[in-house]
């Protein structure tokens, strides 16, 4: 699947790169769905011998290919929430020299990056590569509820039901973009929803 080229945006919006193997004693790779392809691209036998892969397929079929890389440890999680305790465990028990690689959707990378930051890793030291869905993880600024995998702008908050427009303003701490009521000054006047980058 070709990589999506994000249009230029404001300074709080994350910028993703391309994973590269860096020197390290241990390597933690967390990916979802098409993020597996970024791992497949960077994998070498030497790297995989020291790598712990945590993969959330979300319906994609890369598990066998990832296992075939013979990583030192491999876990397939049914959801991010199910994988979270294992991610925390790895981060809390890590030693100096751990390299962190995140790949896949923005929601996955943002949440895993936040866990790593809370464990003391500077966000600038964490590699990321976007692959797959361009849906966003959105926070409603009004009720604070998170709506996952938002693909259209505007969208309806899954919690309070307000019509929200999708901002590019992004919080690493919340791992979410900001959604703000679009019809506060003219209730009911909600433009037709379209794809976020259309």
């Amino acid at each position: 699947m070709p990589k999506f080229e994000f249009p230029p945006s404001i300074r709080s919006r994350p910028v993703y790169g391309t994973l590269e193997a860096r020197p390290g004693k241990h390597h933690l790779m967390v990916a979802d769905a098409d993020g597996a392809e970024a791992i497949l691209d960077v994998a070498t036998p030497e790297l995989m011998a020291k790598t712990h892969i945590i993969y959330i397929p979300k319906g994609a079929v890369f598990t066998d290919k990832l296992r075939a890389l013979k990583p030192a440890q491999f876990y397939e999680g049914p959801s991010y929430a199910a994988s979270l305790q294992r991610i925390r465990h790895v981060l809390q028990n890590a030693h100096m020299g751990l390299q962190i690689y995140l790949a896949g959707t923005e929601g996955l990378m943002g949440q895993a990056q936040n866990e790593a930051m809370q464990a003391g890793y500077p966000h600038t030291a964490i590699q990321t590569e976007h692959r797959g869905s361009i849906a966003r993880r959105m926070q409603c600024v009004h009720c604070k509820g998170i709506t996952e995998d938002v693909e259209t702008d505007p969208f309806v908050c899954a919690h309070c039901g307000l019509n929200l427009f999708v901002r590019d303003h992004y919080s690493r701490r919340l791992a979410a973009y900001q959604g703000v009521c679009i019809d506060a000054e003219d209730p009911g006047n909600v433009p037709e929803a379209k794809g976020i980058y259309e």
Partner: peptide
């Protein structure tokens, strides 16, 4: 602007939505 959203951001990030000034 929301402190709860912007807390932890650096100077350029919390000013990101301001037009023209960057």
């Amino acid at each position: 602007w929301s402190l709860d959203f912007d807390i932890g951001m650096n100077f350029f990030e919390w000013h990101a939505p301001v037009p023209l000034a960057h």
